[in-house]
């Protein structure tokens, strides 16, 4: 039983990062119809920026995290403008190829400039607590709490503020939003900035726990897509719930069945679920 709760705890921690990353992806993929395959790579870049700010420039953990979020937000806006906006009205596959180009540039740049080896961010909160026989490091608890706060703030932003509601308006009806005077291009920029900044936050939060490496983004980006599709493209609650479910699934499967195959569960589940519901679990019926 102790192993079970320990795995649940790890799963929730893992799921917190998945939820944030998938949330950012569902905003751009579901709402702006842009299949941003470079999302995982932007996440990776966020972790690297935090690492270098902390080790080279003596930033504290929190100031590095915020600076990294701002930097990634700007990079996200740049990528939207250069890589995706010219392809707005073309078939999906074109944006997809463009995204592959962005992926190659991001991953290779990090390898060329900073080397292919893994690195570890010094852990700002190395203490442990034991609760009901479960070992929890402060950093892991912090990830869970911070993810919760971030998701909560993002919900408030989208539901209660004017810029946030414009994002929702564009999602519901692009032409309608244009008709009432919403600048759709500005909304795209804003959504991209939020999406990449939250990815940077997630990456910086877990970076002290796992190693960071140039290839860390690829698999995570793929999992984020799995979550977004399972949860229904464009559905924010679906992305959050899907993130936690996948995290727990992986931790339980990895703990009880086989750690080597832990990535197979997520991908296998996707194929299985899409075969029953071709538009995802909570997806709307669209052709």
């Amino acid at each position: 039983m102790q192993l079970f709760f320990q795995q649940i705890f790890n799963g929730v921690m893992l799921g917190s990062t998945y939820a944030i990353v998938a949330l950012g992806l569902t905003l751009v993929f579901g709402i702006l119809q842009i299949p941003n395959f470079a999302h995982g790579h932007l996440y990776m870049l966020g972790a690297y920026i935090t690492f270098f700010l902390m080790t080279l420039y003596g930033f504290g953990f929190w100031s590095a995290l915020v600076t990294s979020m701002v930097a990634l937000g700007l990079i996200g806006m740049l990528i939207e403008r250069v890589v995706y906006r010219p392809l707005q009205d073309r078939p999906h596959i074109n944006s997809f190829i463009s995204a592959v180009g962005a992926m190659i540039i991001l991953e290779t740049s990090v390898i060329v400039f900073w080397g292919p080896q893994g690195r570890r961010i010094p852990n700002p909160y190395p203490d442990m607590v034991e609760l009901f026989g479960i070992t929890m490091s402060h950093q892991r608890l912090l990830v869970i709490v911070a993810a919760f706060v971030l998701i909560f703030l993002l919900q408030i932003f989208i539901k209660k503020t004017t810029p946030g509601t414009t994002i929702e308006a564009v999602a519901q009806n692009r032409e309608g939003a244009m008709l009432v005077g919403i600048n759709v291009n500005r909304v795209s920029s804003l959504t991209f900035a939020i999406s990449t900044a939250t990815a940077a936050a997630a990456a910086s939060l877990v970076a002290p726990i796992f190693m960071i490496s140039p290839t860390m983004g690829a698999l995570l980006g793929m999992k984020a897509f799995v979550i977004v599709i399972l949860g229904g493209v464009g559905s924010i609650p679906g992305a959050i719930l899907g993130g936690y479910i996948l995290g727990i699934l992986e931790a339980i499967g990895g703990g009880y069945l086989s750690a080597a195959y832990k990535d197979v569960y997520a991908f296998g589940a996707l194929i299985l679920i899409l075969s029953i519901r071709p538009t995802g679990l909570f997806g709307k019926e669209v052709s």
Partner: peptide
């Protein structure tokens, strides 16, 4: 049979998942 029931990006991603599964299985 299952993946072609989905379309567009959904199909791309579900086939990508199958591709990744093949290489993970080959490795393990």
């Amino acid at each position: 049979l299952p993946t072609l029931r989905s379309r567009g990006s959904y199909f791309a991603i579900s086939t990508m998942c199958f591709g990744v599964i093949v290489s993970i299985v080959a490795g393990n």
